[in-house]
């Protein structure tokens, strides 16, 4: 175990931080799972952070001038460069601390937020560069599995079979034809100290992982599953239910990769069938039994692969 994490006891429902670094009055849709993930992540990090946002839902809904939901210093530059901007912030803090222009012992966590498009697609290069260079920062991908802000277009993180406005099902298509890009594995391949997956349904797990990500020295990556009622065609009230089901069906397993070693943080021994998860969302409505079987097989195989990774190291 990393020594930076040795003293961290973890949050509990009884000792949650009172601070809300992210203020209400934001314009997120009703039942938005992404803004909840963002809120919980910031709650775990506290007020001593500098936050960088990529363009996307969270940036738009949090900052329509003259209003901001950010109670911590925040900067948004563009879509594809959250990790690069965060690199600059981190380097500046380092230089200013060394030169005595920023209090040396004052801990400031640098955190970058981006959606799945801003992470898996257009921002992947900047992310890879920042992880490889070893900046001490946290990168949080809030994954709602498509370009929601622009009207639900497919991304590299859109799951197989999902209907989006650029992966519509038709006579020659079942919808999204590709399997979800495994960004946590890409992040882990950089040999960074900490990678994790999380979902707001397991809020303590999410908060603990984000806090650990901040505590480790060097880059950390947290991939947070973020239900989107608008883009998925689900009920707003079902966002947490979906986030739980995604884990219970093994579609979105919860794990950590600490110094390259995989740990499954929530073992799912009796998985629910994927159908239970799929049927709550309009984006999967067109799938046939055969498609669902195919998805089930893939999910089973991926989970097996993950188990092997967690065991053999």
């Amino acid at each position: 175990m990393l020594k930076e994490l040795a003293k961290f006891k973890g949050f509990s429902a009884k000792n949650l931080p009172k601070e809300e670094p992210f203020a209400p009055g934001h314009r997120a849709c009703q039942g938005c799972g992404e803004v909840l993930a963002l809120r919980l992540a910031l709650k775990a990090l506290g007020m001593n952070v500098i936050a960088v946002s990529a363009t996307g839902c969270m940036e738009i809904i949090s900052s329509p001038f003259p209003y901001t939901s950010w109670r911590v210093p925040w900067i948004h530059i563009a879509f594809e460069n959250a990790a690069a901007v965060a690199s600059g912030v981190e380097a500046a803090l380092k230089a200013l601390k060394r030169k005595g222009r920023f209090p040396k012992n004052r801990r400031v966590d640098v955190v970058a937020f981006a959606g799945d498009g801003g992470t898996a697609d257009i921002g992947l290069q900047a992310l890879s560069g920042a992880l490889e260079r070893g900046h001490d920062f946290v990168y949080i991908c809030l994954d709602n599995e498509a370009y929601m802000n622009t009207g639900v277009q497919r991304s590299g993180c859109t799951p197989y079979g999902a209907m989006t406005t650029t992966s519509p099902p038709g006579e020659k298509s079942i919808g999204q034809m590709t399997w979800k890009k495994n960004v946590p594995a890409i992040a882990a391949a950089h040999g960074i100290p900490y990678v994790a997956t999380a979902t707001p349904a397991f809020f303590l797990d999410l908060m603990n992982k984000v806090k650990k990500a901040a505590l480790v020295n060097g880059p950390a990556y947290v991939h947070i599953y973020s239900p989107c009622p608008t883009g998925w065609g689900s009920k707003g009230e079902d966002s947490i239910r979906l986030a739980r089901l995604a884990v219970e069906t093994r579609i979105f397993p919860l794990y950590e990769v600490i110094e390259g070693k995989y740990y499954i943080t929530r073992k799912v021994t009796k998985p629910k069938p994927v159908e239970e998860y799929l049927k709550l969302q309009r984006r999967f409505r067109h799938l046939t039994e055969e498609h669902i079987r195919e998805i089930q097989q893939r999910v089973d195989a991926e989970y097996e692969r993950l188990l092997r990774l967690a065991e053999c190291l």
């Binding site: 500098i50 960088v52 900067i75 530059i77 563009a78 594809e80 460069n81 990790a83 690069a84 901007v85 965060a86 690199s87 600059g88 912030v89 981190e90 380097a91 500046a92 803090l93 380092k94 230089a95 200013l96 222009r101 920023f102 290069q125 900047a126 890879s128 560069g129 920042a130 490889e132 260079r133």
Partner: peptide, 22 residues
Amino acid sequence: EYITVESEHSAISACLGSVATG
């Protein structure tokens, strides 16, 4: 601090983050 970025796009992006931090 010399940031050996992976592209010019990231070079200028990092510069913005840096100047914004003072």
